[in-house]
Design a protein around this nucleic acid. Structure first.
Length: 1050
RNA sequence: GGGCGCGUAGCUCAGCGGUAGAGCACUACGUUGACAUCGUAGUGGCCACAGGUUCGAUCCCUGUCGCGCCCA
């Protein structure tokens, strides 16, 4: 059955992919013929995600590397998998719930996570199927998931990724690399969770800045003086207040101080005094100190800054430096707190602290709710409005004189209105929720990144140094980042790294393996009588002081409750009898713990039975940041902590292919964590690629509506065309602007290859006709194209070795289209029925097979299809051997001859075109002069030249009158165009050529006549320049001669 | 404010010490026995600007002017 006219991608792709999978072609180690391994970890897409252009690009590059290595016989593994993507996935499920007016909190945690698992199983295969459509040759039998093996995972989700994550947490905790602390974190009020710095987006919004007066204590006054640069007084008044500018008036309630710069003379007289926060019930106004700190900018606003340590990152730093208390004002939804003692009591406590009469523990400070009773429970923005209104009403806003016109009377009058500046400002937003982030003082878990960052920096420093020196060694235990610029980004971030907040207040994720217990400390609690029993006094003390409020709970970090209970028992052992033998039981939270403990003491009191005593512990409800688990992707997917054969064989992996947007999120953390856990780099090379943008260079985003779905492109052009386009545009570093025209162009390339094969089929020049082995032909044309093929192979390998994907693609494009199709197929046509027909058929069959082989990593579908259709094969192309031939196949003489032939044809075609010779008209040619080499070349290739240049018969002799001249290396041809030729036009053509040549010659002469050039430039450059000049002069002479002849005629 | 980068043909971009390339677009011609998803031939560039290093600079260095992105 003859071949179709074009490749039917839509029909073939699914069939071919199924065939690959069925034969296990992508299994780890498939087609391995040598010991070396090659392993790539896929950057795990979100489990609820779908394929976007970035994935298509990213995975195309990985697939090229993987297929290339597999064909070369490496023991290859491309490890696929998905990420559980905490917030993103939980959001998807919560949105589903919202459709039926339900909330996560309406159900139990277990019920909710069961729903998420359902969602995972429903949508988890979507992206896998999409990657398959792209042709990704992952070993799907090893598909991994970052939540596999979690305690409530349903059937089919077994695995040990969860165990690995938990094990790492516990080990890092034990080594002191993870700690818990009350810190100011980015709090997302929508998801009610902390998020990391990286998950915060700064968005510019129109902001307002209010100016308020903080009166000095007891009506004190001071001389407020402003001076200009020369020290001359420009303003002076007596003030009884200090003026503060703020964009967040509601946080005034939690102010702990007012700060000014130590060099700010305006406020020097009042530093150390107290001032009053101008909001809240008059009788309980709080006083706060005026302090100095480097942070306030004297030139900005009034130069004085209110310090609200619990709700602003800069203020928090100031508060820490000066030991100012940080009063938390809001709850997890960013509503004003409604808990704790009434305002009057809280304000009194805060006053005592401000006056230095009292100091509080962190936990005690957190218990103080300084929100006035009338504002409690309000949304933060509603509270803001009320605070502003109250201050304005009291006349404590800074005001400006404004002119206004009475509408009715038309009378002008001046009035004072509160000063509110309108300013653009950057405001933090949650990258998932899009709500304004509230800095919030909460207990969170942190990785002490400073302690693990050094090895990660060191490994890349060494890798980059080796890369630079040209001594890079994949096995040396260091890592390079390509391109170099991204290494700079990596260094910059890691050198300035902040502690990494890893706890999230979500339900979907790895629950933190920490249990808390009531802090019953042996020093705090002693058995007074040492009688081994608890009396009422002791029990009362236990309940009263043993711990609980305002005391840090005991912490037991362990992989399971049983293990945590063991640790708890170690603590209990230090307690007096009978408490030391209390049973450790798990409860839901601290409240339950208190209740259970109290109840148990009650039972004990009645029964005096020590076995009734219990020690309740409760688990931290938080989960781990998704990136904590994906940070373990390299070892986790290979089965760590078990010592699996895959781990031994494939780790450290080879290359990580990723976009620059997750260098911080993921690459840096994988480096740190692998080094911290197994003390090895996870991969030797990180290849960082650009982002795919639309044709205008804009990021593709749903809101812009410029998203191109890769699947649509695959439907329209075929996966091969899309892949080849992305590859050809993958120059390191830059944005990749994708346009449909470009894809269509590469789709045409696939058609070109298809049709070249069709030609071969029609001429019985396929492997199935010829056997397919590499021939050793005699004809120059055949020897030449074999050499060109070898050149292409060398250059593709060189490009891929250097991760220059675009160079590889462009090399193949130029070879297949520019050499094979444009020239070789045309040259072969006249040879198909002569003496060399046999070797030409064999050569063509071999060359086209090589095209398919070399193109396979880039365009797997069409090449596999052609491979299958053109011969009987022992294995599929996916496992065919990558060629090893090289420079030995390049025949310099054949090369030179064919270049001469091509140049001659091009010259003649060009001349004909400019002379407006009808394309179909065949012309005679006269050889007017020729050296031996040229004659031999002509003799061997005449049929081809005649066909391609549309010539008819060659004679030797002088150039006839009215002919055009064609100069080639070694001689001249003349083409008689009596009656056709336009002499003026031919003159113009020759003059133009001569002019261009002259320009070049002049440059060359100039250089050669400069003695400094001859002395300083390398020998071969000088020699090359001389040769060029000689050749140019030879050609110029011919052109001049031709012009002279024309002058005689015309 | 700090960091990273980019200004090369109409467009999108390669090249990054030896005198400029590709694809697309454009123009003209063309039903040559694989392909019109094609062929042939062409048009098109002070390589942002100004200095410096060098025998030689689009390429290295410095500055200026535009334009991005990341982090504050």
């Amino acid at each position: 059955m003859p071949m179709e006219k074009t490749f039917n991608a839509a029909e073939a792709e699914q069939r071919l992919y199924d065939a690959w999978e069925k034969s296990g072609a992508f299994r780890a180690g498939a087609n391995a013929s040598r010991a070396e391994t090659f392993c790539i970890m896929i950057p795990p897409p979100n489990v609820t995600g779908s394929l976007h252009m970035g994935h298509a690009f990213n995975n195309t590059l990985q697939d090229i590397l993987v297929r290339w290595h597999r064909m070369r016989g490496f023991d290859t593994l491309w490890q696929p998998g998905q990420d559980h993507a905490g917030i993103a996935t939980q959001m998807v499920v919560e949105r589903e719930l919202a459709k039926t007016n339900r909330r996560r909190t309406d159900m139990s945690r277990d019920d909710f996570t069961a729903l998420v698992w359902e969602q995972k199983q429903k949508s988890g295969n979507t992206i896998i199927d999409q990657l398959k459509r792209l042709g990704a040759s992952c070993d799907w039998s090893r598909n991994a998931f970052t939540m596999s093996g979690a305690p409530n995972a349903p059937k089919g989700e077994e695995g040990n990724f969860h165990d690995a994550v938990i094990k790492v947490f516990v080990e890092m905790y034990d080594k002191g690399l993870i700690y818990r602390g009350k810190r100011l974190v980015n709090w997302d009020p929508h998801f009610e969770t902390a998020i990391s710095d990286l998950e915060v987006e700064q968005i510019e919004v129109q902001g307002q800045m209010w100016h308020f007066k903080y009166p000095l204590e007891d009506g004190q006054t001071y001389e407020y003086v402003e001076k200009d640069e020369e020290g001359r007084v420009t303003f002076r008044e007596t003030r009884d207040y200090i003026s503060i500018a703020t964009t967040r008036p509601e946080t005034m309630l939690g102010d702990g101080a007012v700060a000014v710069h130590p060099s700010d003379e305006r406020y020097a007289p009042i530093v150390g005094k107290l001032c009053e926060i101008p909001v809240g019930p008059k009788e309980h106004r709080r006083l706060i100190p005026i302090i100095t700190d480097e942070y306030p900018d004297p030139t900005f606003g009034s130069g004085a800054v209110k310090i609200t340590g619990a709700h602003d990152f800069n203020d928090y730093a100031v508060a820490k430096r000066s030991n100012i208390p940080c009063y938390r004002l809001m709850d997890t939804r960013a509503h004003m707190r409604a808990d704790g003692a009434p305002y009057a009591e809280a304000a009194a406590t805060a006053m005592a602290v401000a006056k230095g009469e009292k100091t509080l523990t962190e936990a005690e400070v957190d218990a103080v709710n300084l929100v006035p009773d009338d504002l409690r429970g309000l949304d933060r923005y509603e509270a803001r409005k009320r605070v502003i209104a109250q201050i304005n009403a009291e006349g404590l806003a800074v005001t400006v004189l404004t002119k206004s016109i009475d509408k009715e009377t038309g009378a002008e009058h001046l009035e004072r209105i509160p000063l509110v500046e309108q300013n653009k400002m950057m405001q933090p937003h949650g990258d998932r929720s899009k709500v304004v982030i509230e800095p919030m003082l909460t207990d969170q878990w942190f990785v002490d990144t400073a302690k693990i960052v050094e090895p990660a920096l060191d490994a890349v420093r060494k890798g980059m140094a080796a890369q630079e020196a040209g001594t890079f060694d994949e096995k040396a235990g260091y890592t390079r980042i390509l391109p170099e610029r991204d290494a700079k980004t990596y260094f910059h971030w890691l050198e300035n790294i902040e502690p990494w907040c890893i706890s999230r207040q979500l339900w979907w994720g790895h629950q933190i393996p920490v249990w808390y217990g009531l802090g019953i400390h042996p020093i705090v609690f002693v058995d007074d009588e040492a009688d081994g029993a608890l009396d009422e006094v002791e029990m009362f003390r236990l309940l009263r002081e043993g711990a609980f409020d305002g005391q840090d709970p005991a912490t037991y970090c362990a992989a399971s409750f049983a293990a945590a209970a063991d640790r708890a028992r170690d603590d209990l052992a230090a307690l007096p009898t009978p408490l030391h033998a209390a049973r450790v039981v798990e409860v839901a939270d601290k409240h339950e713990a208190m209740a259970a403990f109290t109840a148990a003491l009650g039972e004990y009191e009645v029964t005096q039975d020590p076995t009734r005593l219990i020690y309740p512990v409760w688990r931290d409800p938080g989960v781990l940041d998704t990136w904590f688990s994906s940070g373990l992707w390299p070892i986790g997917t290979l089965g760590w902590p078990e010592d699996t054969p895959e781990l031994k064989k494939y780790f450290p992996t080879d290359v990580l292919v990723t976009g620059f947007d997750i260098i911080f999120f993921w690459v840096a953390r994988m480096m740190m964590m692998q080094l911290a856990v197994v003390d090895q780099v996870p991969f030797h090379t990180v290849y960082v690629h650009a982002l795919v943008r639309d044709e205008k260079g804009r990021k593709m985003s749903k809101s812009l509506g410029n998203v191109i779905d890769p699947l649509d492109l695959i439907d329209e052009f075929g996966a091969d065309a899309l892949r080849f386009t992305l590859t050809a545009m993958a120059a390191m570093g830059r944005d990749l602007k994708l346009s449909k025209d470009r894809i269509a162009g590469y789709r045409n390339f696939t058609t070109k290859l298809w049709n070249a094969t069709r030609f071969a089929e029609m001429n019985a020049a396929l492997p199935r006709d010829t056997g397919g082995a590499r021939p050793e032909p005699s004809h120059t044309v055949n020897r030449w194209i074999i050499g060109e093929t070898a050149r292409a192979r060398l250059s593709v390998d060189e490009a891929l070795t250097a991760y220059r994907f675009n160079d590889a693609a462009n090399t193949l494009y130029a070879f297949v289209w520019g050499k094979v199709c444009d020239w070789y197929v045309e040259f072969a046509k006249p040879l198909m029925d002569g003496d060399q027909a046999g070797e030409t058929r064999a050569t063509m069959a071999w060359v086209l097979d090589q095209c398919c082989t070399l193109l396979h990593p880039f365009m797997p579908f069409i090449t596999e299809e052609l491979w299958g259709q053109t011969g009987t094969r022992s294995k599929m192309l996916v496992h065919a051997d990558w060629p090893a031939y090289g420079a030995d196949l390049i025949d310099a003489d054949a090369d030179r001859e064919m270049n001469w032939v091509i140049a001659l044809i091009e010259e003649i075609r060009s001349a004909r075109m400019q002379m407006h010779v009808p394309a179909g008209l065949k012309l005679p040619v006269v050889m007017t002069a020729m050296d031996d080499r040229g004659r031999a070349a002509w003799a061997r290739n005449e049929p081809m030249i005649a066909r391609l240049a549309r010539l008819d018969g060659m004679t030797e002799g002088a150039a006839p009158k009215g002919s055009i001249t064609v100069a080639v290396e070694g001689g001249n041809f003349a083409i008689p165009l009596e009656g056709v030729i336009d002499i003026a036009e031919e003159k113009a053509r020759l003059s133009k050529a001569l002019e261009k040549l002259d320009k070049d010659m002049n440059g060359l002469r100039g250089r050669l006549s400069n003695p400094k050039f001859v002395d300083s430039a390398p020998e071969e450059v000088v020699e090359e320049t001389r040769e060029k000049l000689a050749l140019g002069e030879e050609e110029a002479a011919k052109l001049k001669a031709a012009l002279a002849r024309l002058a005689e005629v015309g």
